[in-house]
């Protein structure tokens, strides 16, 4: 994590908490809506984040923010950063989501998100495929939810996707 940040400095002291070593024991599931699937050009439309504590998804305290072309993104990003803190990020197709966030956040704080990342499709793959390369596995999110006997997504919005990722994470996480 530190290596990735070499040469870059957090230049907004208000966000020091992103680099804190303190372990809250929580994780946070994130998802986004964007204008396309190309991480280089897509624009963020919406972001959702929901904290995971122990066995519980703190759905009642989730964050869902929308970005509009005519409004500055900083207030929404600020709320998002404060909610995720230094917690590991959990998500589906997480590199895409975090890539978009980084493009928006880096100008604001000087560094990309330093958080640890947990890709739930990766967790699922590892749990199912013990011999690499031998099996083809349906890694679509709905297929994963179905295979794990989890409730289906309520919609295709960022919050529904964050919630689905959180459930997959809790089902597959090997704790203790």
């Amino acid at each position: 994590m530190i290596a990735r940040l070499r040469g870059q400095q957090l230049n907004a002291p208000a966000y020091d908490f992103l680099l804190s070593e303190e372990d809250s024991g929580e994780a946070v599931a994130v998802a986004c809506e964007a204008t396309s699937y190309d991480p280089a050009t897509a624009e963020l439309r919406a972001l959702a984040a929901v904290r995971i504590r122990g066995n519980r998804i703190l759905a009642s305290r989730h964050l869902a923010v929308a970005f509009r072309p005519d409004e500055p993104p900083e207030p929404a990003l600020d709320r998002f950063l404060r909610l995720i803190g230094n917690r590991p990020l959990v998500g589906y197709y997480l590199d895409f989501t975090v890539g978009l966030i980084d493009r928006a956040v880096q100008p604001m704080i000087g560094i990309p998100l330093p958080n640890e990342r947990v890709e739930v499709s990766g967790l699922y793959y590892e749990s199912r495929v013990k011999v690499p390369g031998k099996n083809a596995l349906n890694l679509r999110l709905d297929a994963i939810l179905g295979a794990l006997d989890l409730p289906g997504r309520a919609g295709d919005d960022a919050y529904s996707n964050a919630l689905a990722s959180a459930m997959v994470y809790l089902r597959l996480k090997t704790d203790e």
Partner: peptide
């Protein structure tokens, strides 16, 4: 709005 979600593995 006030609901949280708990996920429990079999036998826990």
């Amino acid at each position: 709005r006030s609901l949280d979600i708990g996920v429990y593995a079999k036998d826990t």
